[in-house]
Computed example of a mutant assay.
Amino acid sequence: MTNEMMNRNDFGMLDPFERLAQNFWAPFEGANQALKTDISETDTQYQVHVDVPGIDKQDVKLSYRDNMLSIKVQKHSFVDHSDQDQNVVMNERREGTLQRDYMLPNVSAEAITAQQADGVLTITLPKQAASENDGKIEIN
């Protein structure tokens, strides 16, 4: 409350420079909510590393369909930090769902594996064997 009052002028409005600063940083406030991911590719596979600190593996849902890897994470970490008078000093942890999709073609879907250790989810997506005919079709 004190900080809020310090940022107001006599008319009960935010200082114009404070408003400008808030508007400037607004597009970046949700940037830390994305699933941070590294993807590497070799001739035989894709390997995906996703940061999921503090997430139990049962809260992670993976699917591969139509050349698309989908990762959905449900975070249940909200803790009420209020005291007996319901005063909260600070509360930055939130509950919610994060989801990302990655186009990774030519994957052998039945051979995909995933492990989670030390806050990192590692997904290995083996590629399908290359076709011998180079996509050419013979006309009889």
Rank of each mutant, 00 (worst) to 15 (best):
M1Q: 14
M1L: 12
M1T: 13
N3W: 05
M5E: 15
M5V: 11
R8M: 15
D10G: 09
D10Q: 04
D10M: 11
D10H: 05
F11D: 00
F11A: 07
M13K: 01
L14K: 08
D15L: 09
D15N: 07
F17P: 01
R19E: 02
R19S: 07
L20D: 08
A21L: 14
A21Y: 05
Q22G: 00
N23I: 04
N23W: 02
A26L: 14
A26M: 06
P27K: 04
P27V: 02
F28L: 09
E29R: 11
G30A: 08
A31Q: 12
A31I: 10
A31R: 12
N32V: 10
N32A: 07
Q33L: 09
A34W: 02
L35C: 09
K36R: 10
T37Y: 01
T37L: 09
D38L: 14
I39S: 05
S40A: 08
S40N: 12
S40D: 12
T42C: 08
T42M: 10
D43W: 00
Q45G: 10
Y46R: 04
Y46A: 02
V48N: 06
V50H: 01
V50L: 04
G54P: 09
G54I: 03
G54C: 01
G54M: 05
I55D: 00
D56M: 05
K57Y: 06
K57R: 13
K57T: 06
Q58F: 12
D59F: 11
V60I: 15
V60W: 11
K61M: 02
L62R: 07
L62Y: 03
S63N: 15
S63L: 00
Y64S: 03
Y64N: 03
Y64M: 07
Y64W: 03
Y64T: 04
D66V: 04
D66Q: 00
L69S: 06
L69D: 02
L69H: 05
S70P: 07
I71C: 02
I71P: 00
K72R: 09
V73P: 02
Q74W: 06
Q74M: 04
K75R: 13
H76G: 00
S77N: 09
V79N: 08
D80M: 02
D83C: 08
D83I: 03
Q84M: 10
Q84G: 10
D85A: 07
D85W: 11
N87H: 05
V88N: 02
M90Q: 08
M90G: 03
M90V: 13
R94Y: 01
E95C: 03
G96Q: 09
L98R: 07
Q99F: 04
Q99D: 00
Y102Q: 06
M103K: 06
M103F: 02
P105F: 06
V107C: 10
A109K: 15
A109I: 13
A109W: 03
A111D: 14
A111R: 12
I112S: 06
I112E: 03
A114F: 04
A114I: 10
Q115M: 14
Q116H: 12
Q116V: 14
Q116T: 09
A117I: 08
A117T: 12
D118R: 15
V120Y: 13
L121V: 12
T124V: 15
L125M: 13
K127P: 13
K127N: 15
Q128V: 09
A129H: 03
A129N: 08
S131T: 10
S131H: 13
E132M: 07
D134T: 09
K136M: 11
K136G: 02
I137G: 07
I137Y: 04
E138S: 08
E138R: 14
E138Y: 13
I139R: 13
N140G: 12
N140S: 08
